[in-house]
Design a protein around this nucleic acid. Sequence first.
DNA 1: CTGAAAGCGCTTACAG
DNA 2: CTGAAAGCGCTTACAG
Lengths: 347, 347
Amino acid sequence: MNQGQRNQPAVTLKDLADELGLHLSTVSRVLHSRDDVARRAASSATAQKVRELAQLRGYSPDPQATSLRTRRTRAIGVIVPRLSDIVLATMYEGVEETAAANNYSTFVMNSHDDQDEQRRKAGIMLARRVDGLILGDVHADSDLVHELSSRGVPFVLMNRRHPQYPSSTCDDVVGGELVADHLWAQGHRRVAVIAGETYASTALDRTGGFRKRWEALGGTLPDESVVWSHFDTEGGREAAEQIMLAPGPVPTAIFAVNDFAAIGAMGALRAAGLTVGKDIAVVGFNDTSLAAQLPIPLSSVRSPMMEIGRRAVGLLLNVLDHHSAESQLLEPQLMVRESSDFGVEGS
Amino acid sequence: MNQGQRNQPAVTLKDLADELGLHLSTVSRVLHSRDDVARRAASSATAQKVRELAQLRGYSPDPQATSLRTRRTRAIGVIVPRLSDIVLATMYEGVEETAAANNYSTFVMNSHDDQDEQRRKAGIMLARRVDGLILGDVHADSDLVHELSSRGVPFVLMNRRHPQYPSSTCDDVVGGELVADHLWAQGHRRVAVIAGETYASTALDRTGGFRKRWEALGGTLPDESVVWSHFDTEGGREAAEQIMLAPGPVPTAIFAVNDFAAIGAMGALRAAGLTVGKDIAVVGFNDTSLAAQLPIPLSSVRSPMMEIGRRAVGLLLNVLDHHSAESQLLEPQLMVRESSDFGVEGS
DNA sequence: CTGAAAGCGCTTACAG
DNA sequence: CTGAAAGCGCTTACAG
């Protein structure tokens, strides 16, 4: 907030140097170099005067000039399916916070989960010369990540993981297991899963973790009880309708791998005359701020969304420093609420 | 997506010029100048060869170098209360789309609706030398906007308006009026308003428009029936609880100036034993994707969120071009759904 | 039609 | 402790 008045040209190193009768290289070293260099750049009295004048004149270094010299922009590109998905928006809050704390700025773009858009947006980011990318929308069959990798572009994954690249995600397998344990303990034996998009590791891992644990407990989960879907309310409603229409008895519990899909499902179930939390259990995922506040509070697996964003930046900074970057699998936690807090007799 | 292989230095104008035996200024003019300049910069045969080689080598101009010369970054800073608010996230989608279409990139930061944070984030953006700012979080008593204005920083407002500066918003007064008309026509006479934050023009205008029309219709709205609140589910719940506890008969309808507040209110009403859409009407605002999909579909005033974002960019581009920028007031539309689609007898 | 040169604001080896 | 200079990759007046 102090880059000069009334759109007058910003003050430069040269301005400060001229005013103090120093060379601009000295001023640069005092203001921008590492401590040891800065200390041998000027007497402490001079250094003090430089810093005071910089403060007084509201000097702020021109990042374009710095980047041109250093070939680093201190900018990070973030690509997400859509920021209007509260899950990604919350992760982005963690990204922004940690990036800013490390003097990085972030560009963020929506890919709408379309692979051509991902490629296009990545291209825009790279044309901007970002130092690295955080991808929140990787598809299981993505070609883009391999291309980026072979071109040496620094990037990490967030939200969704990929076996070959470093990522910061929730431990979605464990999340699915938690739901299986819970529903089994409540006595459910006929369940269905609203499974999300087949290209997203979140969907695959949550569904896979659920299935594996469910079967280990002695349960069965026929393929027709797993309905792949979009991640939004609309997708959840459609999936629930499909579940209700399937032959055989209606399930006593539904696990939706996303809170918004769960909310859509609740609408469809109510329309079918069922009372969620009494006739049928519903469990969502992510524990978005809405879940606890719904008319019928929704059980949900809490994932540490902010922290996922923070760790993603940490990972990328490691990659940029040529350090090793180990994928982060953050622990989820099941929040049981009215929508699933009742027992049924095993069938 | 074509800035050189394996982190090798990107190809420059000089690289292209050397390979073609031309001077880099010629190459620059062919590739980057306006048509008339470009045409007189080289024979069409030469120009053709330049363009082909640029394509082949994957040339993309270095934006830092360009900015250093032109003193324009083609970057826009966007500040919002929080991106995890779907309303702002959706507006940002419009911003991103229109900015990208005009070859601008966008930085976006969360201010958490805190005035110190707003100032800090604006400072970071300006230190990055953005060409202009889009503020989605202006407070009615903001000092920041006046400072920015007196310093000649180009900016426009989005989402919330301010009498002195150009803005792109929903016509929130009209939105409030639509709700008053609807509830009055359904026979409601005792109503309450969950009014939002006192510092936000959205809250003030929606509540003000509602009140004015309501009183014009012959209704009364005592001050204690207007409860200022946070914009989220939690805030809506608290406000609804306060409304239920107030002396006198419970209202037959509640207007919440935000969908999330409306959802929180629905939870509180249900807890109090009331059935929304039968015992009591609830109307929200913004018609977020959730509203229509809720177990009890929520009536809501649809605001053109994407378009608000698009227009904000348009306005800012006008300001940057020193054209006049006229505030945009976009038309809202009431979507009546189950939560308020019933009549009551006037009391 | 094409070139040569200055300069945007920095950083950093080199020199003293 | 301090300075002088080169150069990052562009744009654009000036010259021919």
